[in-house]
Amino acid sequence: MPNQQSRRAFLSGGAAVVAATAAASSAFASSNAGIRIAALTDVKPGSPVDFQYPAGAVAYLVDMGRAVPNGVGPNASVVAYSGLCQHRGCPVGYDGEGQRFVCPCHRSVFSLAKGGACIEGPSQRGLPRVRLEVRGGEVFATGIENGPVYGRACDNA
């Protein structure tokens, strides 16, 4: 029964998870400005970068290709969200065409144009946003907004 299984075991055995483009986060370093995610040059529109934030919880860095609220980078176009669906904790997949995340388990849809809000499906909340800072051409995660991230009680990373 899925409710007896760990979330990851369920996922690996069941629904296909749409893989976001994996990259970066090899330099999983933190500083007093947060945790380094990637160099700005590694983030391209349409190709999100996955990282862990907080540790053990997948998150995605996305270049929206246009200025968006809370966006960072030269075009104020880079944002990041927790990648765990708030419904039951499945890692969401990226639908670049719609600039949305879609949960493979129960199909909740999260709109990046609407700040990660859930626009369809059973999720009761939007995806928490990862607060970003750019220093020296590198993007750092510095906190969580609209948390907590699935699985946690606290917003802190």
Partner: peptide, 30 residues
């Protein structure tokens, strides 16, 4: 985090306490 990153294959690194400024806007609330 250090342990988590190590498991994930990242470079373990570290741990200065987050500056007080970072605690605003939701971070640190439970």
């Amino acid at each position: 985090e250090f342990v988590g990153a190590g498991i994930a294959g990242g470079l373990g690194a570290i741990t200065a306490p987050r500056p007080a400024a970072a605690a605003g806007g939701g971070a640190g609330e439970c």
